[in-house]
Nucleic acid binder design. Structure first.
Length: 567
RNA sequence: UGGCCGGUAGUUCAACUGGCAGAACGUCGGACUUUGGCUCCGGAUGUUGCAGGUUCGAGUCCUGCCCGGCCAGCCA
């Protein structure tokens, strides 16, 4: 077995800055040696590969130091949030292989405490009810080079603010009529510190609290306090929250907290080439029917990757390998794929399938004879045993494995050439039947009975071994082939609409694939290797549909590509 | 335009905090092979963003500049 995915030191690498910090805190006795993290998604969408990095980081950092990691839904904005998303997210985390500490919690669990603390700030003169409209507040915030201007409501009395806040809570005002703001500094160089909004009025039902509340806390007002309530020690988030740390700390400094103060640390989010992860762009693909739903195998959503056949172990190994830093970059999707291949090479059973069938008739095969050939399930793991594959005088082989006029370095079948049939015999092509267009319709071949077992007693060699399926035993199936979702490495990098580089050829459905009969037994969701073609995942819902997870490394394809480029 | 964060092979990250710039993936070549897969061996790839300075010695420290990202939601 390869090094554990969760161990960042498994590759002999040094610790990243977050793990270094956590260990330093532990060593210095901070938080009494306790480590607690959390994964805090908003339940308004599905998790994608970028979230996987955060999930792995939070859970693994905690586990490595004997700490705990909770799943907390950041449900502070009822618009768009739904219990169904929360369930899907919890399910995806479990699939990835992590078990949150205890039952999932919700920021909405703390609405009452948050409100009490809001009154506390009001009483300290550190928060006030503003009734400028949203537009005015925005205009009065100033900009990067201009300080903001104080709201005319900034200096109300504590009593008046308290009364107004209570009126807000009981629903005396319309949406947007008033907000509660922290009273910090309208000239602060950090725009977030210019009297940030803590509560907005929304007469909208919340999926958990129903209509108990009509004021909802903003992210900044809820997040750090939720961390503090739960006893989080290290609050990890992505780089764009860097500027929020100052506010995070400000709120915590001015509140009577039950315990130690959590600290926020930011790391670079994960970006992958040839795909997108922003909710907006993902939605555009789904809504525009450019993909088939949120679990389309082309999508970088966890549900998509799962359906595509990506093993969770490979995703975890990938996340461990890329590490964590404060530089925003783009990872090559090839790296992720290489982890998928490495894992699947060890674990996936081998089968034979012909995607684009070409008929082979073996003229010297005894009439009506059927042999059950034994083939290893996984040469990488003899413990996986063998299976029987029926062999007969009429076979399907891959069209790509035959050429009438083979170029240099093409080692496969051609008129007069001999190859080995995997787990079968040597096979020579005597001639190719063609139609009026010159299209090859059928191959007439002879096999060498002395090559049973795969070797010729006379010592002659073949350059290629090809896969095959007995025509009379073949099972029909549909196979979906996938390519890059976007042709550009970084869609939209040049300022254009990312969708412009959407790859219409990202999915190709092959209806008439021929499978060896053993493949009928493949479990839903199971991933197998179609020999010489790649790894394929059996669709969880549709019986005879396979999705190509990832192809094998293909040297012949590389040769062809190079030739194309040089010509 | 102000503030903050960042800049090391093609890509993502290292470099024990001042001591010979490395790894993985990719790429190229070879060996092996009943998968053109896997495995193994080897090669190539760098003005460490730029320019100065300190030092016996700078990716690392100092100064200036350049480039990229984030911030002006009652989104998270």
């Amino acid at each position: 077995m390869s090094p554990e995915p969760s161990s960042p030191s498994g590759e002999g690498r040094s610790l990243d800055f977050i793990r270094e910090r956590v260990r330093a805190d532990n060593a210095s006795g901070a938080y009494a040696g306790r480590v607690q993290t959390r994964f805090p998604p908003e339940p308004n969408g599905f998790l994608h590969i970028g979230h996987a990095k955060a999930v792995c980081l939070n859970f693994e950092v905690a586990a490595e130091t004997g700490g705990t990691c909770r799943l907390r839904f950041d449900d502070t904005n009822p618009a768009g949030e739904d219990a169904a998303y929360a369930e899907a997210i919890a399910d995806d985390i479990a699939w990835l292989g992590f078990e949150p500490d205890g039952a999932a919690v919700y920021a909405s669990d703390y609405f009452e405490q948050l409100y009490e603390w809001a009154e506390h700030l009001v009483r300290q003169g550190l928060a006030y009810v503003d009734e400028q409209g949203a537009e005015t507040i925005s205009a009065n915030r100033g900009d990067f080079s201009t300080p903001g201007t104080d709201s005319p409501w900034r200096d109300r009395s504590v009593a008046e603010n308290l009364g107004l806040l209570r009126d807000m809570r009981v629903g005396r005002f319309d949406d947007g009529a008033k907000v509660l703001r922290a009273r910090i500094d309208m000239a602060h160089p950090n725009m977030l510190m210019r009297d940030p909004v803590m509560y907005r009025i929304r007469h909208t039902a919340h999926f958990r609290t129903g209509d108990a509340w009509c004021i909802y806390p903003t992210y900044d007002w809820a997040h750090g306090q939720s961390d503090a309530i739960e006893g989080v020690t290290h609050s990890l988030c992505s780089l764009e929250f860097d500027a929020h740390r100052q506010l995070y700390d400000w709120y915590l400094e001015h509140l009577p907290l039950p315990g130690d103060r959590p600290r926020q640390y930011e790391f670079a989010r994960l970006n992958l080439t040839h795909t997108v992860t922003s909710k907006r762009k993902l939605s555009a693909l789904v809504d525009g029917a450019l993909v088939n739903g949120w679990d389309d195998p082309r999508l970088p959503t966890l549900r998509g990757l799962r359906r595509r056949g990506y093993p969770p172990e490979a995703i975890r190994q990938f996340c461990a390998h890329i590490g964590v830093a404060r530089v925003n970059g783009v990872h090559e999707i090839e790296l992720l794929e290489s982890f998928v291949r490495t894992h699947l090479n060890r674990t996936a059973q081998r089968r034979m399938a012909v995607l684009r069938p070409l008929e082979v008739v073996i003229d010297n095969w005894p009439d009506g004879r059927i042999e059950l050939r034994r083939a290893p399930n996984n040469p990488e793991d003899p413990g996986e045993g063998e299976r029987e594959v029926p062999f007969s005088g009429r076979l399907w082989i891959e069209r790509d494995d035959f050429m009438l006029d083979p170029p240099r370095k093409f080692y496969r079948l051609a008129p007069g050439r001999e190859v080995r049939l995997r787990a079968g015999y040597f096979l020579r092509c005597d001639y190719a039947e063609t139609d009026l267009d010159g299209e090859v319709t059928r191959l007439r071949c002879t096999y060498d009975p002395d090559t049973d077992g795969g070797q010729a007693p006379d010592g002659r060699k073949v350059r290629a071994t090809i896969h095959w399926v007995s025509a009379d035993h073949a099972v029909d199936a549909a196979v979906a082939l996938y390519d890059r979702l976007f042709t550009d490495p970084v869609p939209g990098a040049d300022g254009r609409d990312p969708l412009e580089s959407y790859n219409p050829a990202s999915r190709e459905l092959i209806a008439g694939a021929k499978l060896e009969p053993e493949l009928k037994k493949t479990a839903p969701g199971e991933v197998v290797q179609f020999e010489r073609l790649g790894y394929f995942a059996h669709d969880p819902g549709t019986p005879m549909l396979f999705h190509r997870t990832v192809g094998l490394r293909d040297e012949w394809a590389n040769i062809q590509k190079r030739r194309q480029q040089s010509s």
